[in-house]
Design a protein around this nucleic acid. Sequence first.
DNA 1: TGTTTATATAAGTGTTTGCTTATATAATGT
DNA 2: ACATTATATAAGCAAACACTTATATAAACA
Lengths: 114, 114
Amino acid sequence: MDKTYIEVEEAAHTMKLLGDRTRLTLLGLLYSGECCVCELVEVLQMSQPSISQHLKKLRDARLVKEKKKGQWVFYSLNTSHETYPIVHQVLKQIPDQKEKLRALEDKGLRIQCD
Amino acid sequence: MDKTYIEVEEAAHTMKLLGDRTRLTLLGLLYSGECCVCELVEVLQMSQPSISQHLKKLRDARLVKEKKKGQWVFYSLNTSHETYPIVHQVLKQIPDQKEKLRALEDKGLRIQCD
DNA sequence: TGTTTATATAAGTGTTTGCTTATATAATGT
DNA sequence: ACATTATATAAGCAAACACTTATATAAACA
């Protein structure tokens, strides 16, 4: 079995996670840099538990990494995931989510750390 | 809105269809050339209605095209679908399904037409 | 015409999904 | 210590999903 390929089962699992508008947008946001949960909630205009539950799925699949900083939890893409090449290809082809983060910044809601 | 990008909603819909082991394998098979339903049933070792229902979903999304030839229906990838670039990127990165079709041929179960 | 073969569709069912509201946990600030 | 803020988790629920079995449709063939 040629291991340069991603197995069908695993690829399908990743695709399933990308197959939801909310999660795909979350990943698109993280594609332009790490974000904390409250920013994601603000941008997506969805309930905090809903966003947290989506993040849990992405975390369980190890598609995203988390980093705690004080009261915040910052999420970022796990670029060393076996299926990241696919994720990357997909994210490259959807609209850039950066401007949504810029809009957040304008409202003074962007979380700075370090 | 930059139309060189695939909208998030549409990308998510396609990803959802790819997010199932059976459908991803079906698309992988079609990636190596058109197949008729009975071949797909034979390769995937699943019930004919189940395969037909998966094909219907892919057809409804226009990810695949159908071509009737006598009693058979041949399916192929719709390479002009708006999200085909993504589909292509994904299929490129999963194991080649050609050998499964070759095995069919060895059993004399491959359908020839033209 | 009647039978076989290929495919689609319908109906039923248990499982999974994506939300909701409520609550728990943990760090921050007073 | 206590209130606030950020996040996670639990429980409940309607809708979507992926099968199953049964049946419909249509072409091929004896």
